[in-house]
Amino acid sequence: MLRYTVLRVLGAIPTLLLVIVLAFLMVHAAPGGPFDDERVLPPEIEANIAKKYHLDEPLHRQFLRYLGGVVQGDLGPSYSYRDHTVSELIGGALPLSLHLGALAMLLSLIVGVTAGTAAALRKNTVLDRTVMALAMTGISIPVFVVAPVLVLVLAVYLQWLPAGWSGNAGGARYLLPVVSLALPQIAYIARLTRASMIDVLASDFIRTARAQGLGTIAIVRYHALKPAMLPVLSYMGPAVAAILTGSVVVEEIFGIPGLGQLFVRGALNRDYTLVLGIVIFYATLIILLNLLVDILYAVIDPRVRQR
């Protein structure tokens, strides 16, 4: 198990390196530079700035310099938020985003698994069809539509919830962003759970459990839930990626000063190092979470452990 984990971590390094190279090249291929402005600077000053940030060096030297920093955990200075390093900026914005993301994930799992299980147990009934229709809707509507519509209805018309990220709204301000982030994931997880639960409920060992006189709830709780969760677990990696992507939009819409907003600002300001830093951070996060999922897989399924 340990050997497997170490091997998987080592295997992630080339992937991460590839992400860094691609992101670096793409950022540098974008037209314009971080210090281009409507106000044209005198050439000497421009050269000075370029020299300070090593932008006058050839691309490969810049890359190696950057990579050297990344290895030591230094993502470089921000070009637009002067006096701050990228690591500081990420560290500052991260807790809020993490909070939102974790809440969204938790909500998706609880609601998705419950709805999916209920649909599976009442297969081909009105309940099942309703859940699946709602799930299909949830998957089809993108987050940049869901979020404004929720704001319009619940915050503007009904005035039940705050529209933005106002400090005096307390915990209520989390509600709309978290729900907007979670909705598509709830839908996916409900569909996945339903499908795998139906499969599991048809297996021989469930028939054994029925022969033993176990009721539906006991069967789901003791026999079916664990195996039915395997496909959902596999989806956790992509789900985290989807929530990260969603948070870029949601944080912008609700005005939340998190990592997503920082990312958008960085891109708009052509802040090379900030954008690169966040991309690398996201990539690392997703790779690590996928690794965690694989390890959890072995925890749930004892047969995987032996191999």
Binding site: R207, Q212, Y222, H223
Partner: peptide, 29 residues
């Protein structure tokens, strides 16, 4: 079921839950 009548199936590999320890499978009955 279980208290008055019980069934032993043909293939125990299929009929026992691979995800649950033997003791727990019996205990829950």
């Amino acid at each position: 079921r279980a208290r008055h009548m019980a069934l032993v199936f043909q293939d125990p590999m299929q009929a026992l839950n691979p995800f649950v320890r033997i003791g727990a499978q019996l205990r829950v009955i």
